[in-house]
Lab assay of single mutants.
Amino acid sequence: TGYYDVLGVKPDASDNELKKAYRKMALKFHPDKNPDGAEQFKQISQAYEVLSDEKKRQIYDQ
């Protein structure tokens, strides 16, 4: 599964769309709200870390 799929956004998503999707998913799977969501929360955080950084995103998109 790709990072875009993890966040539920298209590859041409804007920074604002990425942030909005990340916040929505992070709230849904945060371990405090969803004890079984810890692994998914890590994936969401990693996806956002890469896609929100312009240089990392360019490398990922290659």
Score class of each variant (00 low, 15 high):
residue 7 L to T: 01
residue 5 D to A: 14
residue 38 A to T: 06
residue 10 K to N: 09
residue 55 K to C: 13
residue 54 E to I: 14
residue 29 F to Q: 03
residue 37 G to L: 11
residue 14 S to C: 09
residue 1 T to Q: 13
residue 17 E to K: 03
residue 16 N to P: 06
residue 47 A to G: 02
residue 13 A to M: 00
residue 39 E to N: 07
residue 26 A to N: 04
residue 53 D to G: 06
residue 21 A to T: 00
residue 50 V to E: 05
residue 3 Y to C: 13
residue 29 F to C: 08
residue 3 Y to I: 04
residue 4 Y to M: 01
residue 60 Y to L: 02
residue 60 Y to H: 03
residue 27 L to Y: 08
residue 37 G to N: 14
residue 50 V to S: 03
residue 33 K to Q: 10
residue 33 K to M: 12
residue 36 D to E: 12
residue 29 F to Y: 13
residue 47 A to V: 06
residue 39 E to M: 08
residue 22 Y to G: 00
residue 58 Q to R: 14
residue 57 R to C: 05
residue 46 Q to W: 12
residue 5 D to H: 10
residue 53 D to A: 07
residue 35 P to R: 05
residue 4 Y to P: 03
residue 1 T to C: 15
residue 9 V to H: 00
residue 23 R to K: 12
residue 49 E to N: 09
residue 22 Y to P: 00
residue 27 L to G: 07
residue 15 D to L: 15
residue 61 D to A: 06
residue 45 S to C: 14
residue 53 D to N: 11
residue 8 G to L: 02
residue 40 Q to V: 12
residue 3 Y to N: 05
residue 41 F to L: 06
residue 20 K to D: 15
residue 6 V to T: 06
residue 22 Y to K: 00
residue 44 I to T: 02
residue 37 G to M: 11
residue 57 R to V: 03
residue 20 K to W: 10
residue 36 D to C: 11
residue 13 A to C: 13
residue 19 K to E: 13
residue 21 A to H: 03
residue 42 K to T: 07
residue 33 K to S: 12
residue 31 P to I: 07
residue 30 H to M: 06
residue 38 A to F: 11
residue 45 S to Q: 15
residue 17 E to A: 07
residue 36 D to W: 10
residue 4 Y to G: 01
residue 34 N to H: 08
residue 4 Y to W: 04
residue 31 P to C: 11
residue 13 A to N: 01
residue 45 S to Y: 10
residue 6 V to E: 02
residue 13 A to Q: 01
residue 33 K to I: 14
residue 61 D to T: 05
residue 30 H to Q: 07
residue 59 I to Y: 10
residue 8 G to R: 05
residue 26 A to R: 13
residue 16 N to D: 15
residue 41 F to H: 02
residue 48 Y to S: 03
residue 37 G to W: 13
residue 19 K to Q: 13
residue 14 S to R: 05
residue 45 S to H: 12
residue 46 Q to G: 05
residue 51 L to W: 00
residue 54 E to Q: 13
residue 17 E to Q: 08
residue 4 Y to R: 02
residue 9 V to I: 09
residue 50 V to R: 04
residue 40 Q to K: 14
residue 2 G to A: 11
residue 50 V to H: 06
residue 60 Y to M: 03
residue 35 P to K: 08
residue 33 K to L: 14
residue 62 Q to A: 13
residue 39 E to T: 10
residue 31 P to R: 06
residue 27 L to A: 14
residue 26 A to W: 15
residue 41 F to D: 01
residue 24 K to Y: 11
residue 38 A to P: 04
residue 27 L to R: 13
residue 43 Q to H: 08
residue 45 S to V: 15
residue 29 F to H: 05
residue 31 P to G: 07
residue 17 E to D: 11
residue 29 F to K: 00
residue 54 E to G: 12
residue 10 K to M: 09
residue 13 A to Y: 03
residue 57 R to Q: 05
residue 47 A to R: 01
residue 41 F to T: 01
residue 54 E to L: 13
residue 16 N to R: 14
residue 9 V to A: 04
residue 61 D to H: 05
residue 35 P to G: 06
residue 11 P to C: 14
residue 32 D to Q: 08
residue 52 S to E: 04
residue 43 Q to M: 15
residue 47 A to D: 02
residue 2 G to E: 09
residue 24 K to S: 11
residue 16 N to L: 15
residue 31 P to A: 09
residue 46 Q to S: 06
residue 12 D to A: 05
residue 19 K to R: 14
residue 62 Q to F: 08
residue 27 L to P: 02
residue 44 I to Y: 04
residue 54 E to A: 15
residue 55 K to I: 10
residue 25 M to Q: 07
residue 14 S to P: 05
residue 42 K to W: 10
residue 26 A to V: 13
residue 53 D to K: 09
residue 4 Y to H: 03
residue 26 A to H: 15
residue 48 Y to E: 02
residue 36 D to L: 11
residue 22 Y to A: 01
residue 23 R to W: 13
residue 20 K to R: 13
residue 38 A to R: 09
residue 25 M to Y: 05
residue 40 Q to P: 04
residue 19 K to G: 06
residue 15 D to Y: 15
residue 26 A to E: 07
residue 31 P to V: 06
residue 32 D to R: 10
residue 3 Y to P: 05
residue 35 P to Y: 02
residue 2 G to T: 15
residue 53 D to L: 05
residue 52 S to V: 08
residue 34 N to F: 08
residue 4 Y to Q: 01
residue 26 A to Y: 15
residue 21 A to N: 01
residue 57 R to I: 03
residue 59 I to S: 11
residue 15 D to W: 15
residue 19 K to F: 13
residue 2 G to D: 14
residue 28 K to N: 08
residue 62 Q to S: 10
residue 48 Y to D: 02
residue 41 F to W: 15
residue 55 K to F: 11
residue 7 L to P: 01
residue 11 P to T: 08
residue 49 E to W: 13
residue 45 S to D: 06
residue 41 F to Q: 02
residue 35 P to F: 05
residue 25 M to A: 09
residue 28 K to E: 10
residue 48 Y to T: 01
residue 27 L to Q: 12
residue 18 L to D: 00
residue 47 A to H: 01
residue 20 K to M: 14
residue 5 D to Q: 12
residue 46 Q to C: 12
residue 14 S to W: 01
residue 55 K to W: 07
residue 48 Y to H: 02
residue 16 N to K: 13
residue 15 D to R: 14
residue 3 Y to D: 00
residue 49 E to C: 14
residue 62 Q to N: 10
residue 8 G to H: 04
residue 50 V to L: 06
residue 24 K to G: 07
residue 15 D to T: 14
residue 52 S to W: 06
residue 51 L to Q: 01
residue 15 D to G: 11
residue 20 K to L: 13
residue 24 K to L: 13
residue 47 A to F: 04
residue 10 K to S: 12
residue 24 K to T: 08
residue 55 K to V: 12
residue 61 D to F: 04
residue 18 L to T: 01
residue 55 K to D: 05
residue 1 T to I: 14
residue 22 Y to V: 00
residue 25 M to I: 06
residue 9 V to W: 02
residue 42 K to L: 11
